[in-house]
């Protein structure tokens, strides 16, 4: 006998190990390789520590005070520095962040906000269509009004878009609650059905709706 007896088990052990490792690797890539891990959670530090929690939460400002054309245009615009100064010319004038804001406005410079949510350039998205249809900011951006630093909470992947386009009922609200992120809708599915019928909504699943 050239090989010791335990060598008989080696091929089986190697096979079992390889299978196990393969399964573990597949599971790991499935779990952590997709946009639910790679996209969700991105929360870059901003040049000025602007807090939605303070402004949209505590002060109760409406999203549309700052993101003013979100109901009509594809892009939800970020507010200009001047619009912040309507308050900050007086409020918290000697805080570090507000000083930086005031300096940028005085020099007529854009504030280099770091982009958080970003679709690839080959996908087309339109805020106005969704807001008019009754989809709340909450469905796609989470509880922004509780975030001190904006964080992405949805994967923004194609399957995520399609999940809602196929079954949007539970996500639709009456117009006056679109920006009330804390509102509780009593019976979301029935409410959504009614809205879908009255506005004749039919979210498209054609490739050309989102890719051109």
């Amino acid at each position: 006998m050239v090989f010791p007896g335990f060598m008989n088990k080696v091929p089986m052990a190697v096979l079992a190990g390889a299978l196990g490792l393969g399964a573990a690797l597949t599971a790991a890539i499935w779990y952590w390789g997709g946009p639910k891990h790679t996209e969700v959670g991105y929360s870059p530090k901003q040049p000025i520590p602007f807090s939605h929690r303070v402004h949209a939460g505590d002060l109760g400002m409406d999203c549309r005070f700052c993101h003013n054309t979100v109901e009509r245009t594809a892009v939800a615009p970020l507010p200009s520095g001047e619009s912040c100064m309507s308050c900050h010319a007086f409020v918290k004038k000697d805080s570090e962040g507000v000083k930086r804001l005031a300096a940028a406005v005085a020099k007529n410079e854009a504030i280099p906000w770091v982009r958080v949510h970003r679709l690839p350039d080959y996908a087309r998205f339109h805020h106005g269509v969704h807001v008019q249809a009754g989809v709340s900011c909450l469905s796609c951006h989470g509880r922004i009004d509780q975030m001190t630093q904006v964080r992405q909470v949805e994967p923004l992947s194609m399957s995520w878009c399609l999940d809602c386009h196929r079954k949007p009922e539970a996500q639709l609200r009456p117009a006056h609650l679109i920006t009330r992120l804390d509102a509780v809708i009593p019976d979301p599915v029935a409410t959504g059905r009614r809205i879908m019928e009255s506005r004749h909504l039919k979210p498209s699943t054609d490739c050309s709706a989102c890719h051109q």
């Binding site: 952590w32 790679t38 991105y42």
Partner: peptide
């Protein structure tokens, strides 16, 4: 830690036509 908070931008292994 799936989807945990991070300051690092998302990694795209295959960024074909993402940035046009």
């Amino acid at each position: 830690c799936r989807g945990g908070r991070t300051e690092r931008p998302p990694i795209h292994l295959n960024p074909n036509m993402m940035n046009q």
